[in-house]
Amino acid sequence: MERLPKIALPVVIGLVVLIILIAKSAVTIGPGEGGVIFKRFGDGIDTSQTYGEGFHIVAPWNDMIIKKVRQQSISDKMNVLSVNGLEVNVNGTVWYEPEYSKLGLLIKTKGENYVQELLAPAVNAAARSVVGRYTPEQLYSSKRDVIEQEILDEVTKLLDQQYVNVKRVLVEDVQLPATIKQAIERKLKQEQESLEYEFRLVTAQKEAEKQRIEAQGKADANKILSASLTDKILQDKGIEATNKLAESPNSKVVVIGSGDSGMPIILGNQ
């Protein structure tokens, strides 16, 4: 077997090294992700550019740091105090996304673990501030949507110029101590029953008023009718009815004289 030429070994070694360098330099950024370059022998994170989805070549002595840049969410359970000092457990979810063009600045100033080191503390602080303005009853019943908006406003202020945008805050559950919860539920039930009673009472009063008005209307109508029925009108009506009876083919009428009221007297008919 003939020996390989002396140049062959360096060529093979060079090819191996080249393949390793290409493999190390090739970076693929997935859907919904962004990347920033960390220059090992430069100034660290390159904040001038965020790399989008797809295939990229990076110098082998540099690193590509890849992070999700689409909308994401974190959920947390927090123990906070209400306005009267009662401990309340709040379960919430926050939707957020980093500013795509500022991803380098976000990582450089806040670190790669910015969710735990920046976002989560801000949400917790906002929740404590907002929940501390309300009573347990308000937290348990009708103030949920207002609380969500106030927490969102607080978080937005805390994260201003921090390169993270919070899109929405959802308060999923508010857990109170059992005794407080039962007391609130009893009070709400009593209020509901009171409202139902008042509704029935108002309805009955309206129905009674309606009947009174209808009865008064009928009485007024009868009074007007009675006042309008003079003897002359009654006599004319009687004559009109007698004429119609006389014109009927099924009747035979004999009229003799008149009654005390001046009306004709009908003696017989068939």
Rank of each mutant, 00 (worst) to 15 (best):
M1G: 13
R3N: 03
P5G: 10
K6A: 15
P10D: 02
V11N: 03
I13H: 01
G14D: 03
V16W: 05
I20P: 01
A23I: 08
K24A: 14
T28V: 14
P31L: 01
E33R: 11
G34R: 02
G34K: 04
F38S: 06
K39I: 02
R40T: 12
F41A: 14
D43H: 08
D46T: 02
T47C: 11
Y51D: 08
E53V: 10
F55L: 02
V58P: 00
A59W: 06
P60F: 15
W61F: 07
W61P: 06
M64C: 09
V69N: 01
Q71I: 00
Q72V: 02
Q72N: 08
S73L: 00
S75C: 02
D76K: 04
N79R: 09
V80W: 01
L81M: 11
S82T: 06
N84D: 11
N84A: 10
G85I: 04
E87W: 00
V88E: 00
N89P: 01
G92W: 00
V94R: 02
Y96M: 09
Y96G: 12
E97D: 13
L103H: 03
E112D: 12
Q116R: 09
Q116F: 11
L119E: 08
A120H: 03
A126S: 15
A127D: 11
T135K: 04
S141H: 02
K143G: 14
D145R: 05
D145V: 07
V146F: 03
E150R: 09
I151V: 14
V155P: 14
T156F: 05
K157N: 09
Q162A: 13
N165K: 15
V166E: 04
R168S: 10
L170K: 08
L170D: 15
D173V: 04
V174R: 00
Q175P: 03
L176W: 00
P177C: 05
P177G: 09
A178V: 11
K181Q: 11
K187N: 02
K187T: 04
K189Q: 15
Q190R: 05
E191C: 00
E191T: 00
E193G: 03
E193I: 13
S194D: 15
E196S: 15
F199Q: 15
R200I: 13
R200L: 14
L201E: 14
Q205E: 14
Q205M: 13
K206Q: 15
A208N: 07
E209P: 01
Q211H: 09
I213Y: 01
A215F: 03
A215L: 12
A219R: 07
S226I: 01
K232M: 04
K232W: 01
K232E: 11
L234G: 12
E240M: 07
A241W: 06
A241Y: 07
T242Q: 02
N243L: 08
A246M: 14
E247N: 13
S248V: 03
P249D: 06
S261R: 08
G262E: 01
G262N: 06
G262M: 04
M263G: 04
I265T: 13
I265V: 10
I266W: 05
G268W: 07
Q270N: 04
